[in-house]
Design a protein around this nucleic acid. Structure first.
Lengths: 119, 119
DNA sequence: GGGATCACTTGACAAACTATAGCACTTTAC
DNA sequence: GTAAAGTGCTATAGTTTGTCAAGTGATCCC
Protein backbone atom coordinates (compact mmCIF):
# COMPACT_ATOMS: atom_id res chain seq x y z
CA UNK A 1 0.00 0.00 0.00
CA UNK A 2 2.75 2.46 0.84
CA UNK A 3 6.24 2.77 -0.54
CA UNK A 4 7.78 3.15 2.88
CA UNK A 5 9.20 -0.35 3.10
CA UNK A 6 12.02 0.77 0.88
CA UNK A 7 11.43 4.44 0.48
CA UNK A 8 12.60 5.82 -2.78
CA UNK A 9 12.11 9.51 -3.56
CA UNK A 10 12.08 8.81 -7.28
CA UNK A 11 9.26 6.36 -6.90
CA UNK A 12 7.42 8.90 -4.81
CA UNK A 13 8.05 11.61 -7.38
CA UNK A 14 6.74 9.42 -10.14
CA UNK A 15 3.64 8.68 -8.10
CA UNK A 16 2.93 12.40 -7.86
CA UNK A 17 3.80 13.29 -11.42
CA UNK A 18 1.80 10.46 -12.93
CA UNK A 19 -1.45 11.69 -11.51
CA UNK A 20 -3.56 12.94 -14.34
CA UNK A 21 -3.03 16.66 -15.06
CA UNK A 22 -0.26 17.16 -12.52
CA UNK A 23 2.50 17.76 -15.04
CA UNK A 24 0.22 19.89 -17.17
CA UNK A 25 -0.56 22.00 -14.12
CA UNK A 26 3.10 22.45 -13.28
CA UNK A 27 3.89 23.32 -16.84
CA UNK A 28 1.17 25.91 -17.00
CA UNK A 29 2.27 27.42 -13.72
CA UNK A 30 5.88 27.67 -14.83
CA UNK A 31 4.78 30.60 -16.98
CA UNK A 32 3.55 32.45 -13.93
CA UNK A 33 0.71 32.43 -11.41
CA UNK A 34 -2.83 31.74 -12.53
CA UNK A 35 -6.31 31.78 -11.09
CA UNK A 36 -8.30 28.60 -10.66
CA UNK A 37 -10.40 28.67 -13.79
CA UNK A 38 -7.62 30.26 -15.73
CA UNK A 39 -5.40 27.35 -14.79
CA UNK A 40 -8.08 24.88 -15.69
CA UNK A 41 -8.20 26.34 -19.17
CA UNK A 42 -4.44 26.59 -19.43
CA UNK A 43 -3.94 22.89 -18.82
CA UNK A 44 -6.42 22.16 -21.52
CA UNK A 45 -9.72 21.60 -19.84
CA UNK A 46 -9.18 19.84 -16.56
CA UNK A 47 -12.43 19.66 -14.65
CA UNK A 48 -12.67 21.69 -11.43
CA UNK A 49 -13.08 18.66 -9.18
CA UNK A 50 -9.88 17.00 -10.27
CA UNK A 51 -8.12 20.31 -10.51
CA UNK A 52 -8.88 21.12 -6.91
CA UNK A 53 -7.69 17.71 -5.74
CA UNK A 54 -4.42 18.10 -7.64
CA UNK A 55 -3.89 21.61 -6.44
CA UNK A 56 -4.46 20.58 -2.85
CA UNK A 57 -2.07 17.70 -3.23
CA UNK A 58 0.57 19.89 -4.79
CA UNK A 59 0.12 22.47 -2.09
CA UNK A 60 0.40 19.76 0.55
CA UNK A 61 3.65 18.68 -0.98
CA UNK A 62 4.87 22.23 -0.89
CA UNK A 63 5.15 22.50 -4.64
CA UNK A 64 2.75 25.35 -4.98
CA UNK A 65 1.29 28.20 -3.04
CA UNK A 66 -2.30 29.27 -3.01
CA UNK A 67 -3.03 32.90 -2.33
CA UNK A 68 -6.51 34.17 -1.65
CA UNK A 69 -6.76 37.76 -2.75
CA UNK A 70 -10.41 38.17 -1.95
CA UNK A 71 -13.14 35.95 -0.64
CA UNK A 72 -15.96 37.68 -2.42
CA UNK A 73 -15.84 37.96 -5.28
CA UNK A 74 -13.58 34.93 -5.07
CA UNK A 75 -10.12 35.56 -6.37
CA UNK A 76 -7.29 33.18 -5.81
CA UNK A 77 -3.99 32.69 -7.44
CA UNK A 78 -1.88 29.59 -7.68
CA UNK A 79 1.84 29.94 -7.98
CA UNK A 80 4.69 27.48 -7.90
CA UNK A 81 6.77 27.36 -4.75
CA UNK A 82 10.54 26.96 -5.18
CA UNK A 83 10.26 23.18 -5.11
CA UNK A 84 7.68 23.42 -7.87
CA UNK A 85 9.75 25.81 -9.93
CA UNK A 86 12.57 23.28 -9.81
CA UNK A 87 10.34 20.92 -11.73
CA UNK A 88 11.23 23.13 -14.65
CA UNK A 89 14.18 20.84 -15.22
CA UNK A 90 11.92 17.82 -15.40
CA UNK A 91 9.58 19.57 -17.80
CA UNK A 92 12.57 20.70 -19.82
CA UNK A 93 13.84 17.15 -20.04
CA UNK A 94 10.43 15.99 -21.20
CA UNK A 95 10.35 18.90 -23.62
CA UNK A 96 13.71 18.02 -25.11
CA UNK A 97 12.85 14.36 -25.32
CA UNK A 98 9.48 15.05 -26.86
CA UNK A 99 10.87 17.30 -29.57
CA UNK A 100 13.47 14.71 -30.37
CA UNK A 101 11.29 11.64 -30.37
CA UNK A 102 7.62 12.41 -30.45
CA UNK A 103 7.79 14.65 -33.42
CA UNK A 104 9.12 11.75 -35.44
CA UNK A 105 6.14 9.74 -34.26
CA UNK A 106 3.86 12.39 -35.64
CA UNK A 107 5.86 12.34 -38.85
CA UNK A 108 5.80 8.54 -38.97
CA UNK A 109 2.02 8.63 -39.04
CA UNK A 110 2.16 10.61 -42.25
CA UNK A 111 5.00 8.45 -43.51
CA UNK A 112 4.56 4.82 -44.45
CA UNK A 113 6.76 2.88 -42.07
CA UNK A 114 4.19 0.32 -40.94
CA UNK A 115 5.32 -2.51 -43.19
CA UNK A 116 7.89 -3.93 -40.76
CA UNK A 117 5.29 -4.59 -38.07
CA UNK A 118 5.69 -7.42 -35.58
CA UNK A 119 3.02 -9.30 -37.43
CA UNK B 1 -10.52 14.89 -27.56
CA UNK B 2 -7.19 15.14 -29.35
CA UNK B 3 -4.37 17.60 -29.04
CA UNK B 4 -4.02 17.97 -32.78
CA UNK B 5 -5.63 21.36 -32.98
CA UNK B 6 -2.39 22.84 -31.74
CA UNK B 7 -0.08 19.87 -31.63
CA UNK B 8 2.52 20.09 -28.94
CA UNK B 9 5.00 17.26 -28.46
CA UNK B 10 5.43 18.13 -24.81
CA UNK B 11 1.75 17.82 -24.19
CA UNK B 12 1.81 14.51 -26.00
CA UNK B 13 4.79 13.35 -23.97
CA UNK B 14 3.09 14.26 -20.74
CA UNK B 15 0.01 12.35 -21.81
CA UNK B 16 2.10 9.25 -22.25
CA UNK B 17 4.23 9.64 -19.18
CA UNK B 18 1.33 10.35 -16.87
CA UNK B 19 -0.33 7.04 -17.55
CA UNK B 20 -0.07 4.96 -14.46
CA UNK B 21 3.08 2.81 -14.34
CA UNK B 22 4.58 4.17 -17.55
CA UNK B 23 7.48 5.93 -15.89
CA UNK B 24 8.01 3.03 -13.54
CA UNK B 25 8.18 0.71 -16.50
CA UNK B 26 10.70 2.90 -18.27
CA UNK B 27 12.75 3.20 -15.14
CA UNK B 28 12.82 -0.54 -14.64
CA UNK B 29 13.76 -1.13 -18.25
CA UNK B 30 16.60 1.35 -18.12
CA UNK B 31 18.50 -1.26 -16.14
CA UNK B 32 18.19 -3.74 -18.98
CA UNK B 33 15.63 -5.95 -20.69
CA UNK B 34 13.10 -7.90 -18.67
CA UNK B 35 10.44 -10.51 -19.21
CA UNK B 36 6.78 -9.73 -18.73
CA UNK B 37 6.27 -11.02 -15.23
CA UNK B 38 9.72 -9.97 -14.25
CA UNK B 39 8.90 -6.45 -15.34
CA UNK B 40 5.63 -6.55 -13.50
CA UNK B 41 7.50 -7.32 -10.32
CA UNK B 42 10.23 -4.80 -11.04
CA UNK B 43 7.82 -1.91 -11.28
CA UNK B 44 6.36 -2.89 -7.97
CA UNK B 45 3.27 -4.94 -8.63
CA UNK B 46 1.59 -3.65 -11.73
CA UNK B 47 -1.15 -6.03 -12.74
CA UNK B 48 -0.79 -7.88 -16.01
CA UNK B 49 -3.75 -6.26 -17.70
CA UNK B 50 -2.51 -2.73 -17.23
CA UNK B 51 1.04 -3.79 -17.87
CA UNK B 52 0.17 -5.23 -21.24
CA UNK B 53 -1.75 -2.13 -22.24
CA UNK B 54 1.19 0.10 -21.29
CA UNK B 55 3.69 -2.10 -23.00
CA UNK B 56 1.64 -2.14 -26.18
CA UNK B 57 1.29 1.60 -26.08
CA UNK B 58 5.00 2.07 -25.49
CA UNK B 59 5.80 -0.31 -28.30
CA UNK B 60 3.39 1.53 -30.58
CA UNK B 61 5.19 4.73 -29.81
CA UNK B 62 8.47 3.09 -30.62
CA UNK B 63 9.83 3.47 -27.12
CA UNK B 64 10.33 -0.19 -26.53
CA UNK B 65 10.86 -3.39 -28.37
CA UNK B 66 9.21 -6.69 -27.64
CA UNK B 67 11.12 -9.79 -28.58
CA UNK B 68 9.54 -13.21 -28.50
CA UNK B 69 12.25 -15.76 -27.83
CA UNK B 70 9.97 -18.74 -27.72
CA UNK B 71 6.28 -19.32 -27.93
CA UNK B 72 6.29 -22.35 -25.69
CA UNK B 73 7.37 -22.13 -23.02
CA UNK B 74 6.46 -18.49 -23.42
CA UNK B 75 9.47 -16.27 -23.19
CA UNK B 76 9.43 -12.66 -24.20
CA UNK B 77 11.68 -9.81 -23.40
CA UNK B 78 10.94 -6.15 -23.31
CA UNK B 79 13.72 -3.76 -23.97
CA UNK B 80 13.89 -0.01 -24.45
CA UNK B 81 14.35 1.22 -27.98
CA UNK B 82 16.68 4.21 -28.48
CA UNK B 83 13.82 6.64 -28.02
CA UNK B 84 13.01 4.93 -24.74
CA UNK B 85 16.58 4.93 -23.56
CA UNK B 86 16.62 8.66 -24.07
CA UNK B 87 13.98 8.94 -21.39
CA UNK B 88 16.87 8.34 -19.05
CA UNK B 89 17.35 12.07 -18.99
CA UNK B 90 13.78 12.60 -17.92
CA UNK B 91 14.07 9.98 -15.21
CA UNK B 92 17.35 11.53 -14.14
CA UNK B 93 15.73 14.93 -13.88
CA UNK B 94 12.96 13.46 -11.76
CA UNK B 95 15.57 11.66 -9.73
CA UNK B 96 17.52 14.81 -9.06
CA UNK B 97 14.43 16.76 -8.24
CA UNK B 98 13.07 14.07 -5.98
CA UNK B 99 16.26 13.79 -3.98
CA UNK B 100 16.35 17.51 -3.57
CA UNK B 101 12.73 18.10 -2.70
CA UNK B 102 10.87 14.99 -1.78
CA UNK B 103 13.31 13.84 0.82
CA UNK B 104 12.53 16.94 2.81
CA UNK B 105 8.86 15.99 2.65
CA UNK B 106 9.72 12.64 4.18
CA UNK B 107 11.73 14.41 6.84
CA UNK B 108 8.90 16.83 7.49
CA UNK B 109 6.61 13.91 8.34
CA UNK B 110 8.96 12.89 11.11
CA UNK B 111 9.29 16.50 12.15
CA UNK B 112 6.45 18.38 13.83
CA UNK B 113 5.36 20.87 11.22
CA UNK B 114 1.66 20.00 11.17
CA UNK B 115 0.53 22.83 13.47
CA UNK B 116 0.08 25.36 10.66
CA UNK B 117 -2.48 23.27 8.79
CA UNK B 118 -4.98 24.82 6.42
CA UNK B 119 -7.99 23.72 8.48
C1' DG C 1 -32.23 43.48 -13.48
C1' DG C 2 -29.91 39.80 -16.53
C1' DG C 3 -25.92 37.51 -17.76
C1' DA C 4 -21.19 36.55 -17.19
C1' DT C 5 -17.39 35.52 -14.05
C1' DC C 6 -14.96 34.05 -9.97
C1' DA C 7 -13.56 29.70 -6.99
C1' DC C 8 -15.00 26.17 -5.92
C1' DT C 9 -18.63 21.91 -4.19
C1' DT C 10 -21.68 18.16 -4.87
C1' DG C 11 -23.43 13.98 -6.72
C1' DA C 12 -24.21 10.87 -10.49
C1' DC C 13 -21.62 8.72 -13.84
C1' DA C 14 -17.82 6.79 -16.89
C1' DA C 15 -13.25 5.52 -17.58
C1' DA C 16 -9.11 3.65 -15.72
C1' DC C 17 -6.90 0.48 -13.02
C1' DT C 18 -6.62 -3.83 -9.95
C1' DA C 19 -6.91 -8.57 -8.27
C1' DT C 20 -7.49 -13.00 -9.32
C1' DA C 21 -8.23 -17.03 -11.96
C1' DG C 22 -7.10 -19.48 -15.78
C1' DC C 23 -4.87 -21.19 -20.31
C1' DA C 24 -1.44 -24.04 -22.76
C1' DC C 25 2.49 -25.55 -22.01
C1' DT C 26 7.61 -26.53 -19.99
C1' DT C 27 10.71 -27.09 -16.39
C1' DT C 28 11.96 -28.59 -11.93
C1' DA C 29 11.63 -31.46 -7.78
C1' DC C 30 10.96 -35.75 -5.89
C1' DG D 1 5.47 -40.09 -13.48
C1' DT D 2 3.15 -36.62 -11.11
C1' DA D 3 2.63 -32.27 -8.64
C1' DA D 4 4.09 -27.64 -8.20
C1' DA D 5 5.92 -23.65 -10.07
C1' DG D 6 7.02 -20.94 -13.81
C1' DT D 7 6.21 -18.54 -18.57
C1' DG D 8 3.27 -14.64 -21.14
C1' DC D 9 -0.68 -13.34 -21.42
C1' DT D 10 -6.30 -12.85 -21.38
C1' DA D 11 -10.94 -12.47 -19.15
C1' DT D 12 -13.84 -10.80 -15.78
C1' DA D 13 -15.46 -8.60 -11.88
C1' DG D 14 -14.65 -5.07 -8.65
C1' DT D 15 -12.52 -0.78 -6.86
C1' DT D 16 -10.49 3.60 -7.52
C1' DT D 17 -9.97 7.69 -10.11
C1' DG D 18 -11.42 11.16 -13.00
C1' DT D 19 -15.39 13.57 -15.41
C1' DC D 20 -19.67 16.17 -16.38
C1' DA D 21 -23.25 19.20 -15.28
C1' DA D 22 -25.20 21.94 -12.31
C1' DG D 23 -25.21 25.07 -8.57
C1' DT D 24 -23.57 28.74 -4.87
C1' DG D 25 -23.07 33.76 -3.37
C1' DA D 26 -21.30 37.94 -4.68
C1' DT D 27 -19.68 41.45 -7.76
C1' DC D 28 -19.18 43.58 -12.48
C1' DC D 29 -20.92 45.31 -16.98
C1' DC D 30 -24.62 47.07 -19.55
Amino acid sequence: MDAERDYCPVHEAIQVLQEKWTMHIVRALLDGPLGFNELGRAVGGCNPATLKVRLDHLEDLGLLRRTVHSQMPPRTSYELAPAGVDLQRVIDAIDAWAREHLDIVAIAEVDEESSVAVG
